[in-house]
Design a binder for these strands. Sequence first.
DNA 1: ACGCGCATGTAACGCGTTACATGATTGC
DNA 2: GCAATCATGTAACGCGTTACATGCGCGT
Lengths: 181, 181
Amino acid sequence: MIKFILLGFLNYAPMTGYDLKQTIDRSSGHFWHAHHSQIYTTLRQMENEGLIASRVVEPQDAPDHRRYTLTNAGRTALATWLDRPLTDPSPVKEQLLVPLFFSAGRDPDDVQAELRVQRARHQEVAATYHALTERLPDLAPEEHGLERDRVFWRLTLKLGLRYEAMYIAWFEHAVQTIETL
Amino acid sequence: MIKFILLGFLNYAPMTGYDLKQTIDRSSGHFWHAHHSQIYTTLRQMENEGLIASRVVEPQDAPDHRRYTLTNAGRTALATWLDRPLTDPSPVKEQLLVPLFFSAGRDPDDVQAELRVQRARHQEVAATYHALTERLPDLAPEEHGLERDRVFWRLTLKLGLRYEAMYIAWFEHAVQTIETL
DNA sequence: ACGCGCATGTAACGCGTTACATGATTGC
DNA sequence: GCAATCATGTAACGCGTTACATGCGCGT
């Protein structure tokens, strides 16, 4: 998966591994994140596969400072992947629900307290999504001809916001339900 | 994670690997699933750790038919794990959003068509959650003293239903947004 | 002089998936 | 007789996480 995210961003502009990490953190990271270690190793792999090419720029002494560019093969691979029919939705993995499912024997006050903490976390996440939405025009200014891209980026953020809102509402419901025990 | 799900279910009753697979598929599978291969290997591991004990029952010739039981160590491990403070919410990984994010250059009709297919899938999932909710009284009959457990199980299903409803509503929004392009 | 942000990498590990494999029992 | 369901396992692999590791440049 991360491979195609890297291809997707390199399709906008050549970038270094560090740039890609920053870009992901500030945009698509809300639905698919990656550690720098994975990014660097995947980039090397992709170069071996001929999907991207690198050039050491501004050597500034020691560390390699590699800027990666999409090759034609990479551009084709991206387009093919985007057009491939979608597979089944990946099965949900909701960490939080695992302990909750088995919490009948626990102190209800403890469970409620934990749910409240989690609710606060989700409220924070919702706030960052909101901030991200506000900053979208900076990421895709009209001069760059990315208006269309912005529409899709906004859609992904919208799902994130709705997801968090849904989750926060559910916490209210859960805390109240446990109250009646 | 699967380790604690197995501990959680074995805390209700001794079971074989196969039973556990069935039970998970019919209950907690909607938020955390497992393949039988992982269940069998994890059970062996847990037995080595002393969390569970097995007995071959009804040998009926060839295949081992192992029924696993929680040990005291296992019961303690489960209780400790349930009471441990929750960690940060696991970062979202929404497969579908990855191609969508980079779909500005694609044919909008294709994108819409795919979104409609996915919406149908999510509607099916919502239907199975609904059916599961209806069957909850069977899984935890009142005579077994599991009324309290049922409350928590219902809460997890409720989140699933809300999640699917949210997703389905977002699909409408997404399809309409793309319509305006 | 010290810490922080920039910038890049390797190695070990854990968890989960996929594929391969076997054999018994039950219903058509 | 054949397929489906019951029932159990192993092996290889892929992906992602965590930890370890290094070194420059800049501000205070």
